[in-house]
Amino acid sequence: MNKQLIGSVVVIGGGISGMLSALDLANSGYYVYLVEKGPSIGGVMAQLDKTFPTNDCAM
């Protein structure tokens, strides 16, 4: 017990969900490693045209 906690988090997956987890943690005081297997982050949402139901541009 009482092992020293490490104030960092690994986030696996750079889709919308992973990116936002990483941002929230980084903005609240934790060091974040964002790991993505592809060459860029953005995930499937980046491939969408518009989003339902507001027709906002997904990009």
Binding site: I6, G7, S8, V9, V10, V11, G13, Y33, V44
Partner: peptide, 14 residues
């Protein structure tokens, strides 16, 4: 990497 937690967010494939 030594980290305190892991968030696993691998998404899906169509």
């Amino acid at each position: 990497i030594n980290a305190g937690s892991i968030i696993y967010s691998p998404g899906f494939t169509p």
